[in-house]
Design a protein around this nucleic acid. Structure first.
Lengths: 394, 394
DNA sequence: CCCCTTTCGTCGAAAATCGACGAAAGTCGC
DNA sequence: GCGACTTTCGTCGATTTTCGACGAAAGGGG
């Protein structure tokens, strides 16, 4: 329970910033703490930069993660874009870049693009390659997390069972983590946004609709990594709108960006996709605003049920359609507070994503950080045993 | 990671039955294991009863939980009954009794009843009171688990905020855990039934409809302990049946035992409650069978959405209405496999509860067992520090 | 400027853990 | 039936980890 890894954990979470605090919290002797800290410093994981303010006695030496020698890369892959972010181990964003990129081009070109961007960002920030300890990648589809293979992703043809980490294996010395983008978004919100909740739902409303689930402070991926696929839940109020999945009345067919764009186009206001709908709504186009608000109601209808079931303390809404918070969230809140049980809603907050456009990449980076700083991982590193090769993880 | 408590954990889970196995699994030296086992035996937690079969060398001495000196009590409180079960720490049922008891009589009489039955069962089984290490109680309503207080339970007037553990505090030396009965049922299924799943939903179909959630092997209680209240989720297909909660189209109004009984009575077949409906269906009354199957479809409609969202590997159905598996489960399966995504259903099992009538009490006992055997709890006991007083827990 | 407080490093003492050894208790082959 | 081999288990000294006391460092306050 109080291994060296746990000591680092306390430092990284900001629970303890000095040796004395660590000793107080863990209950270990100060000399033991001193020895552990020494080891962490020797391994380049922790540094003493400044000395803190005195509280009446000798001022403490402040410990912090060594952000100069430990970095991660977070990648947010969308249907039509790719954002690569370089972060230090403390979670600070050092550099990032977004490019248009069609995920339909298949894994190999995309992976090469990521690799190239990663090297560019490192050069730009003046950090050596060896300081990258892990890479996190969020992809728009279900993933078998343990092996980093997408499984039958609907909008990623050619990626089925492609072993993403294998692309880096052997040639690099970092681990590669791959996850569904809604999960990285949820992580990003949990650790970079304003919402600190043990039980959190991140709802991404784009062309499709998905949901990242934090249960008891940990990501819930479900039995096959398929959890959170709420786009094809039937909406109670809605009619029989046909969905591409073959069923009717799915949330995606009612409130997805594609469905809204089609309806808008049909009504004489051309819109290509969810992003365009959001732009029109933001510009004040009345029909677009009305459709977005109605979409919010549809989403709220489904979420109302999930609130009863899951009882989260926070729901965060993001994705292309959430670029216009007001009408969407208004619709969502309206239905949730009407349909869900009081006990489940009296402390529930429904808010827009606080991490913004970069949330996906930041969350993917956070996935990598959490992997690197996991106590077991640290204990292994300090024990001298080299971590596994640059492949899958956990 | 390898404290004495973890050693006991391996023994209690059946992962290791001998000192040599413990050493192999933990990686600790045999002498260290021997010392830990000695401490556990000295504290009466473990015993050596028999000596195992040789595998070619000296036969091992088999370690097991000391079931003679460690017991728990599990209590299943329903609207109209109370079952008290005496179990040993290994989970074996020693004696139990069910009595009719109206929970509406209020906390004090009910608690006195439990206390009395507990003493009777102990006398019957010839076990001294001091061997009871914890008591688990499942109640039909939401509970703030940390304090053991029901919060606004709809069918338990007078129980709001009543501190259940306080009834025993001071007079006994065990901890008291209180939880929603769907949670104890889920635990019972997980540990006593046939279903070993990390992600499990236990759906209880009685007068109301509730759901116990196991996420990643642990109970998910949600932000306010209100998780799993699926009875008031709106059913997609259903109409506007009014519900006692004030909304319309709730699952409970469509498929709850009360609603079915009312509809059956209306049609000229008098039935008092869900139990009566089940009895009629079991006897072959055609209308009852049809209604139960339709209720199954309604439940399936809601579960189909939850399967997409939560991606469990198993759904277990119990409760009064589930006494007739076939029509109910047929309806549930029919809709789930039609409406949920293939990835989420291809390994999903939908089964009746394997624990039977006593599942609730057994699960409550298991809640108590898990509390007693939690590694931190064991480490504390072995370190000499007395556990907290006979009150709340965790 | 002296006393008090808090932090931190050092070092011997105490405790936990390990590893080697030998005895116990069985199987297997001749 | 007997000896060689295997596996388990207890013991005990050696090693490693952890603790606790001591004193020095570094600042605040009167």
């Amino acid at each position: 329970m109080n291994s060296p890894g746990d000591v680092l954990d306390l430092i990284s979470r900001g629970d303890a910033g000095t040796r004395a605090e660590l000793a107080r919290i863990t209950g270990l002797a100060r000399s033991t703490i001193a020895q552990r800290v020494e080891a962490l410093i020797a391994h380049g994981l922790v540094e003493e930069r400044e000395t803190g303010a005195s509280t009446g006695g000798r001022p403490p030496r402040v410990l912090r993660l060594n952000t100069d020698r430990n970095h991660v890369v977070g990648v947010d892959l969308g249907a039509t874009h790719c954002r690569v972010a370089l972060m230090d181990i403390g979670g600070a964003l050092l550099a990032d870049r977004e490019d248009p990129l069609l995920i339909t081009e298949g894994p190999e070109p995309v992976m090469r693009h990521i690799e190239e961007r990663m090297r560019e960002l490192l050069a730009e920030a003046g950090r050596p390659l060896e300081t990258v300890k892990a890479v996190g990648i969020g992809v728009p589809g279900p993933v078998e997390f343990a092996t980093g293979r997408p499984v039958n992703p609907p909008i990623m043809p050619g990626w089925h069972e492609y072993p993403v980490p294998a692309h880096f294996a052997g040639r690099y010395d970092f681990d590669v983590l791959v996850d569904n983008d809604v999960n990285t978004l949820a992580l990003g919100e949990l650790r970079h946004g304003r919402t600190a909740a043990e039980n959190l739902l991140f709802v991404k409303v784009g062309t499709g609709i998905g949901c990242g689930i934090i249960a008891g402070g940990r990501l819930h991926r479900g039995a096959q990594g398929a959890a959170g696929d709420i786009g094809h839940i039937r909406v109670p109020g809605a009619g029989d709108a046909p969905c591409r999945c073959g069923n009717t009345g799915c949330l995606e067919a009612v409130a997805g960006g594609g469905a809204l764009a089609a309806r808008l186009t049909e009504a004489g206001v051309p819109a290509a996709d969810g992003r365009a709908v959001a732009a029109l709504a933001a510009a004040g186009e009345p029909l677009a605003v009305r459709l977005v608000r109605e979409a919010g109601r549809g989403i709220g209808d489904v979420l109302a049920g999930l609130v009863n079931f899951f009882n989260p303390e926070a729901i965060v809404v993001g994705g292309a359609l959430a670029a216009v918070h007001e009408p969407l969230l208004a619709g969502v809140r309206e239905v949730i507070y009407r349909r869900s049980l009081p006990l489940a809603t009296n402390r529930l907050t429904v808010a827009p994503s606080g991490a913004g456009e970069k949330g996906g990449a930041l969350g993917a980076g956070r996935l990598a950080i959490d992997h690197v700083l996991a106590p077991e991982q640290i204990d292994r590193a300090l024990a001298g045993r080299a971590a596994g090769p640059a492949s899958a993880a956990r």
